[in-house]
């Protein structure tokens, strides 16, 4: 995906000099491998810092909330779906934005890569479909397909859905992927097994709220976990409190989550947080035939009422 960068820089420079936008939101190289950081480019020099590779897994729509002025933004498939969600939730106006669409072939999973090697990974080079990972005393070249983040491996919207200009040719969408394989697996368990599964899943959680901060959907001025009057959820490490946080956060994302995987990517403990949102995405798909962020003209299922909405759960 590194081939897009020249085109991205060219577009960013052009829209900035033409005065179409005041800044361009993209990525620059991070201080450690596989950790590209968000970058707000406002001048030709800062445009030069922009990069694009397989480590751009954060969701840039997160930086658009309630912004004033005109903004250029680099958007892969999931970013563009979150931009659509932002627009329909009135968090930004479509005409403030100049969306530079980037067809995506998936981002690599830094948790997985770090776990593969004993020593610290010091350098990760990408060329075409192969990734070379090296550190003190080791170097290995692997295919990118094996290293994809879990959400990218089952992604069916790699191309941006909304854009003003593309930085490359559209890529072929993945077909025949079972998006909900992980959910179906858990669904087959008994109630006790399910409970233990999620208890184990969340046991490393340190309540740092990185998942919430990286999520483009979590833009409330005061999050429910930070409220103290009333205090909705206990602030301790008790498993019940931890689970309450994760369940409620997931509910707040119901019908809005695009499975961009930013939450999992930023989790310092490598918890599979998508297990919660994925279940809700599956329910939205089954009950309402809805996938978030695909169209600017449709309202999400949870803010509309239809007489034929499913209601089997109400007695």
């Amino acid at each position: 995906m590194t081939q897009y960068i020249d085109k991205i820089k060219e577009i960013a420079n052009r829209v900035l000099t033409e005065g179409k936008v005041e800044m361009v939101i993209g990525f620059r190289k991070g201080s450690v491998p596989m950790m590209n950081q968000p970058h707000l480019a406002t001048s030709a020099e800062s445009v030069d810092e922009l990069v694009w590779d397989s480590n751009c897994g954060l969701n840039l729509a997160n930086y658009l909330t309630d912004k004033k002025g005109t903004i250029g933004i680099i958007a892969k498939g999931c970013d563009s779906r979150n931009i659509v969600t932002h627009v329909i939730e009135n968090k930004i106006k479509r005409d403030q934005l100049y969306i530079i669409g980037v067809p995506c072939t998936g981002m690599i999973d830094h948790h997985k890569i770090n776990a593969m090697f004993d020593g610290e990974v010091l350098n990760v080079e990408e060329s075409g479909d192969s990734i070379t990972i090296s550190g003190n005393g080791f170097s290995e070249t692997l295919s990118k397909q094996e290293l994809l983040a879990e959400n990218c491996a089952v992604c069916s919207h790699r191309n941006p859905v909304e854009y003003d200009e593309l930085a490359g040719d559209l890529v072929e969408e993945q077909k025949d992927v079972d998006q909900y394989a992980s959910v179906t697996k858990v669904e087959a368990l008994s109630a006790d097994e399910k409970f233990n599964y999620f208890e184990d899943l969340l046991s490393p959680c340190i309540r740092c709220y990185a998942c919430r901060n990286a999520c483009p959907l979590c833009y409330c001025p005061t999050c429910f976990v930070d409220e103290s009057r009333p205090q909705w959820v206990g602030k301790s490490q008790d498993p019940t409190d931890v689970k309450t946080f994760h369940l409620l956060r997931a509910y707040h994302c119901a019908g809005r989550c695009t499975d961009c995987g930013a939450c999992e990517r930023v989790c310092p403990m490598g918890i599979k947080i998508r297990e919660f949102t994925k279940k809700l995405n599956k329910d939205c798909q089954d009950l309402y035939g809805w996938e978030a962020g695909l169209s600017l003209d449709e309202r999400p299922p949870l803010d509309t009422f239809k007489t034929d909405d499913p209601d089997e759960f109400i007695k």
Partner: peptide
């Protein structure tokens, strides 16, 4: 709501909804 709670291990039958 019911679906996710039961998905994460709440016994079916503990949570009820009704419109009265």
């Amino acid at each position: 709501m019911k679906n996710l709670l039961e998905h994460t291990g709440l016994e079916p039958g503990r949570l009820h909804f009704s419109w009265i």
